[in-house]
Design a protein around this nucleic acid. Sequence first.
RNA 1: GCGCCUAUAGCUCAAUCGGAUAGAGCAUUGGAUUUCUAAUCCAAAGGCUGGGGGUUCGAUUCCCUCUGGGCGCACCA
Length: 557
Amino acid sequence: MNDLSKIVKDNIFEMIFEALNKVDKNLSMDFRVEIPPNEQFGDFSTNVAMINAKNAKTSPRKLAEKIVVFLEENSDVEKVEIAGPGFINLFLSQEFYQQKLMAMLHEEAQSYFHTNLGQKQKIQLEFVSANPTGPLTVGHGRQAVIGDVLSSIYERFGYEVTREYYFNDAGRQMKLLAKSVYIRYNELFGIKEEIPDGGYKGEYIIDIAKAIKNNEGDKFKEKWNEETESYFLHQAKDEMFKHIKNTLNSMNVHFDVYFSEGSLFTDGTVEKVKAIFREKDLIYVNDGALWLKVSEFIDEKDKVLIRSDGMPTYFFTDIANHYKKHERGFKKVFDIWGADHHGHIPRMQAAMKALDFDEDFFNVILHQMVTLKQKGEAIKMSTRQGTFITLDELLEMVGRDATRYFYAMVDKDGQLIFDIDLARSTSMDNPVYYVQYAHARICSLIKNAENKGLNFVPGENLQELNSRQDSLFIRDLMLYTDALIEVIQTNSPHKLTNYIHDLASKFHQYYNSNVFVDKENEAVSNARLSLAFATRKVIKDALMLLGVSAPEIMEQI
RNA sequence: GCGCCUAUAGCUCAAUCGGAUAGAGCAUUGGAUUUCUAAUCCAAAGGCUGGGGGUUCGAUUCCCUCUGGGCGCACCA
């Protein structure tokens, strides 16, 4: 019930709704609480009167006047104004904010800002999911960050989250990989052969070949058979996965489950799904292939499940994958896909319908592609040609904190153009340092207070926080939960970086216009340090959710 | 041809599921430093929000259309 107590806007909403009911019980609650663009317009504002004016058969401003009467009865309200076309602007009392700050000081951010939205619901986020045929790309980096940050926030709000990596290590691509390594291996003995069409030409293939030569010598030299293929395939796969996991590790991304596509065949899931479709009369054979009647659910042609050569399609195994997820007890699953997969969405939705799954079970978080730019030109990326900048290389150039922050700060619906030269040359101007600096500054302030013999006790003398700047600052601190909620409502991590950058900015401003540590004025110092103390909690928590470090000292450059 | 995403300051991006004067960072110009760490702050300049129509009290946001960019339209994954 009181789950909403930490969501500030919902608090204010209740306050306004109460007043609205006293005016007329039949009016619509379809109004919004907003943060005004300008502080002259109050701490909070609402469009309630404009929304309801028509139904109340009056003008927005007249309705507002009636609502304001009841709002003014609330002891938390300092002042109410009607402005513009009928906005109601609320100014809350200093005591209200002081109490909020007090409550915030007594808890850790992760518990104070916690809201039990999830109620331990089991959900899953599937992301990255690259097959072990090469190093991770900068595109995977975007997935890794979006998936990891969202997972952390869902966890914060009481969901039981599984971070999952789905992969296929058995397909045709893996065979090509093995062959490519084999050719490089022979090359080490001076035997030249062209890498076949679609084969892999990256440097890393040679590295794997060298490792095999080191361990096994010339054992496989010019001996291509099933045994050799199997050996090379496993070596390549193990090496690639080691490489991939290293990269994820240095990005600070950790998966709970690595799920093998192959297991869906061995445990009978694929057959089970086929049986269900057959029973529902949703499959048929044509031209030697097995088709699913997706046209019964969406405006598209039917799709192949099993090719005429007997191999199941990616579509089919992915249906089985999701059937399995359902069976594993997930109430909701999120697949994070690049824009190149968007055509896959409708047919998957059709399949989910065919299986009678709840409509909100299957969700796709789509992000647009990442492209690299260097010397003003776009770099063509091709895994097979091996002409790409890997995620590893990017991490090395930009650093983990900045890389993660940069990925998170751009709206997933927009294309991400990573300008390598810019990342290199201006990495110190990255917004992440701005936020980290705010954190370090507060650490330094508190240390400074100790050094000057000031006995700082969080929560004492809060009545000294009596300026408008103080109130608004506390308001912004409290809005942290609201920001996090918005992130998972839209699955958009960039809303968190927006919030925290803005908060850091407000803090830097405050810092420049107020003295925190003043031995002559201990009460005020104590109050302001309390404010800084709470700010540090929020920044630290936000950076943790973003997977970015919160340093106590910024090294001078 | 059809579908999805996108177009905002010189550059990279925001803008609270339709709100008030469209905001940050970088770059440019000017100011603040015996510092509670200047990786900061203050100020200036920079915009017919790609073009055109529509919906209404009100549009960067919703609808239509045109143009430009990205990505898809497989018995690939």
